[in-house]
Simulated scan of single mutants.
Amino acid sequence: MPRILYYLVCSILTILFLFPLAWTLLMTFKTPTEASASPPTFFPRQFTLQSYVRIFSAGIASYLGNSTLVVLITVVVAVVLSMLAGYGFSRFSFPGKNVIFVLILTTLMIPFQSILTPLFLLLHFIGLNNSLVGLALVYITFQLPFSIFMMRNSFESVPRELEEAGLIDGCSTWSLLTRVMMPVVFPGIITVALFAFFATWNEFLAALIFINDTDKYTLPIYLLNLQSGLYGTIDFGALNAGLIITILPSVIIFLLLQRYYINGLVAGAVK
Rank of each mutant, 00 (worst) to 15 (best):
T14I: 07
I60R: 03
A22E: 08
T48M: 08
L194T: 11
V99Q: 11
P187Q: 00
I253K: 10
Q258P: 06
P187N: 01
T178A: 13
N130S: 07
A22H: 02
Y52D: 06
G65Y: 08
V76K: 04
F195P: 07
Y231V: 11
T218A: 05
S131P: 10
L135M: 07
I60P: 01
V102E: 08
P44H: 05
S57R: 15
T117E: 10
A22C: 14
I245W: 04
V53S: 11
G88Q: 03
I221Q: 07
P2C: 04
Y231H: 12
F17E: 09
T233W: 09
L224C: 01
T24F: 03
M150C: 06
P40A: 06
E161M: 09
C10H: 06
A267H: 03
N240A: 08
I4F: 14
F204L: 15
H124E: 12
L21K: 12
N263L: 12
D215C: 00
G59W: 05
L255N: 11
V102N: 13
T68E: 09
V180M: 12
T233E: 14
L162T: 07
T178E: 08
L121F: 11
I15W: 03
V184D: 01
L205Q: 09
L81Q: 05
L162Q: 12
Q46S: 11
I12F: 08
A196T: 08
P145A: 06
A136N: 00
P2S: 10
V79G: 07
F149N: 04
Y52C: 05
G59A: 02
P95C: 04
S114L: 10
A136V: 05
L226T: 10
T48E: 04
P220L: 03
V185I: 07
F89S: 02
S157I: 04
T14A: 15
S250Q: 15
N130T: 06
L72V: 15
Y63E: 02
N212K: 14
L116Q: 12
K271E: 04
I148D: 01
F149A: 04
L224S: 14
F204P: 10
N240R: 05
L18Q: 04
Y222W: 13
E164A: 13
N66M: 02
D235Y: 01
I245C: 04
A165M: 10
P40V: 07
L135P: 03
L18D: 07
T200K: 01
W23K: 14
L194P: 02
S62H: 13
L176R: 04
I253W: 05
N212P: 00
R152S: 07
S82V: 01
L81F: 08
T173P: 01
T200Y: 02
R45H: 15
V99C: 09
P32T: 03
C10K: 12
V9F: 11
A78G: 07
M181H: 09
P118T: 07
I253A: 13
I140A: 04
M182N: 10
N240M: 14
L219Y: 02
V79K: 03
I262E: 07
A207Y: 00
V71L: 08
A58G: 09
L137V: 12
V99I: 15
I234Y: 03
L255M: 15
P145T: 06
I262V: 14
F195R: 06
G134L: 00
S57L: 12
L25D: 04
L72K: 05
L167K: 14
A206H: 12
I211T: 05
L64I: 13
